[in-house]
Amino acid sequence: MTRPTLVRGGGDPVTVFAHGFGGGIADTRPYASGVDGTKVFYTARAHDGIPVDEFGYGPLAEDLRNVADAASATRAFGVSMGAGALTHLLEHTPQRFDRLVFFLPAVLDVPRGEAARAVLASLREAIAADDHAALTDAILAEIPESVRGTPSATAYARIRAETLLMPSLAGLIEILAEQVAVTDLSSLSRVSAPALVIACTDDAAHPEAVARQLAETLPEGRLEILGGTDAVWTRRDRLRALISEFLNEDDTL
C-alpha cells in the first residue's frame, strides 16, 4: 500500500524520514530544516487512520523500504519506532543507504527493560480506557519538568494523545512493546554507510545503552549524547545542526 508522503526541497541527495509511534510527518519535519536536497516524509502504517492486519518492525521496515525506493532515497533518518524500522531494514539489506541517522533508538536485539516497559504501560492503560486526559498526563510525565508547563509541551502532549487514541492504533503499542528490531545484531556489522546515532541521558523509553551499542556495532557509527531528556526541548538548534551537518556531508570528497 502506498504511504501518505510529503516531499520538500529538490535534487540530490534524497533523504527519507521515519517517525516514532504515535507521531507523524509533523514530528519529523523540524529535524530536516537544514538538510540539503530532497526530503521525503511519510506516515507509517496505521498512523493514517487505516487499520492494518500486520504491524511490527518487519512491516514498518517494508513501508520504509517502499517509500525510499519510490523516491530513490540514498539517505535515511529514523526516530524511535522509525529507528527500529531502519535497523530492521538494514539487517536484511545492509547496503541500502549511504548515510544514516538514528535518533533515540529504543530497542535492538534484546527486549525492552523494566523501565521502558513501565513507560509503555502507563500509556497502554490510558489508551485502553480511552481517556484523553489521562493519556495527555502520561505523555506530559515523559517530558522534563523544566519544560512540562510550556505551551509547546502541552500542545505536543494533546496532539500525540489524539493520535494514540485513533482506532487504527488500538492494540498496536502492545505488539511493538514485545518486539525486538533485529534478530541478529551482528548483521549490522555489514552496514558500511556512515551513521550518526543520537541519544539523551536518563530517557527510560530510549536507553542510552541501546544507542551506544548501535553506534559500536555499526562500522562507521558515531555516537552523540545530547545530555538529559530536556535537550530535545531546550537544545533543538544543536540537534538540528547535528543532523543537517551530518547528512549534508559529501561522501565523494
Rank of each mutant, 00 (worst) to 15 (best):
T5E: 15
L6Y: 08
L6I: 07
V7Y: 02
G11M: 09
V16H: 04
G22V: 09
G23L: 10
I25Y: 10
A26K: 01
A26G: 07
G34T: 01
V35M: 01
D36G: 08
G37K: 00
G49F: 07
V52S: 12
G58M: 01
G58Q: 05
G58D: 13
P59S: 05
A61I: 04
A61L: 01
N66L: 12
V67S: 07
D69Y: 06
A70S: 15
A76V: 15
V79K: 08
A85W: 11
A85H: 11
A85G: 15
A85D: 03
L89G: 09
L90R: 03
L90I: 07
L90F: 05
T93L: 12
T93N: 05
P94Q: 01
P94C: 03
P94W: 02
R96E: 11
V101W: 00
V107G: 03
P111G: 05
R112D: 10
A118H: 11
A121L: 04
S122D: 15
L123A: 10
L123K: 04
E125F: 03
L135E: 10
D137W: 02
A141G: 14
I143N: 05
R148A: 14
T150G: 13
A155Y: 05
R158V: 14
A161V: 03
A161C: 04
L164Q: 07
L165N: 07
P167G: 03
L169S: 07
L169C: 14
G171F: 09
L176Y: 01
Q179V: 03
A181H: 03
T183S: 13
L185K: 03
R190K: 13
A193H: 00
P194G: 11
C200E: 15
T201P: 02
D203H: 06
A211Q: 05
Q213F: 02
L214G: 04
A215H: 01
T217E: 03
E220L: 08
E220Q: 15
R222T: 15
E224T: 13
E224W: 02
T229F: 08
T229M: 10
V232A: 14
R235F: 03
L239H: 10
R240E: 14
I243G: 04
I243K: 06
E245Y: 05
T252K: 12
T252Q: 15
